[in-house]
């Protein structure tokens, strides 16, 4: 190796070191630039009802440094939803989470909607062919659940001893893990992932059948809350959403 080559190698090393230093110094900036952005579209009139879901979404998004664009929709048609997805894509959203579209889209059961982003759709029940590529859903164990929400009166009944326990949907849990499912949908480029929610376990009261299942096996996870636990100070945050 002659002197010229030696000095060239030395210069290259200094340059590499400077680049490495710069990378370490500006590491935080890079993190911010790589933030993942997700659009969440939900019915405007279900804000309070979906408080737990939204809280789960926000908490998980904060932990994973995901930016959430929360959109409240009311009385939309197919075009508005599709245009919104296109707009979200243009402003950098990587995926879209649509919560109960049947509650804010007119004639939801009769139309087909094209998704322009990897999408996760949360439905009150299982619908057919209204979201393109819905058949690619990978979430198993779909139960035909009716979204009968636990009301304050049910808590009252529990506290007065009329009933011994309550089965409530773990909406926070659902919102939290829907973000993970959405990330998975993005990773696998699944354009329409239907996640029907609801079921007849409230009406059937077949508690054991539900409880014997693993939480991940049912679309909407449930919580079994006993009066004793409430007296001990547990599940207050869940019950307060009622």
């Amino acid at each position: 190796m002659n002197r010229k080559q030696m000095y060239m190698v030395l210069g290259m090393m200094v340059l590499i070191m400077l680049i490495a230093c710069s990378k370490v110094l500006f590491d935080r900036t890079i993190d911010i630039e790589n933030e993942f952005q997700v659009a969440v579209i939900m019915p405007a009139d279900s804000k309070y009802e979906l408080k737990g879901v939204v809280q789960g979404i926000n908490d998980n998004a904060r932990e994973k440094n995901i930016k959430i664009n929360m959109l409240y929709a009311s009385d939309w048609d197919k075009k508005q939803l599709e245009d919104t997805m296109l707009e979200e894509r243009s402003i950098g959203s990587k995926a879209v989470f649509i919560i109960y579209p049947e509650r804010f889209i007119r004639n939801y059961e009769e139309i087909e909607i094209r998704t322009y982003l990897p999408a996760l759709v949360l439905n009150d029940k299982a619908y057919e062919n209204n979201i393109i590529n819905a058949g690619t859903a990978y979430y198993d164990g779909i139960e035909n659940i009716t979204a009968e929400h636990i009301k304050k009166a049910d808590v009252y009944r529990l506290m007065t001893g009329e009933i011994d326990e309550l089965i409530v949907p773990a909406e926070y849990y659902m919102g939290y893990y829907c973000i993970d499912n959405l990330m998975e949908a993005f990773r696998r480029n699944i354009m329409g992932l239907m996640l029907p929610v609801g079921g007849d376990y409230y009406s059937s009261r077949d508690i054991d059948a539900i409880m014997n299942k693993q939480m991940d096996d049912v679309c909407i996870p449930i919580l079994r809350i006993t009066r004793k636990e409430v007296i001990e100070g547990k599940f207050h945050s869940i019950l307060e959403d009622r």
Binding site: G52, Q55, G56, D59, A170, Y172, Y176, L223, G233
Partner: peptide, 28 residues
């Protein structure tokens, strides 16, 4: 935040209030 938080416990080490109460109660 996830990396900096405080919570309240009683003398039996039971949680009185936790900022992520809902997350804990949801089994996460």
């Amino acid at each position: 935040t996830e990396r900096s938080y405080c919570y309240l416990i009683n003398d039996k080490n039971e949680i009185v209030y936790h900022p992520y109460q809902k997350k804990l109660e949801s089994g996460i």
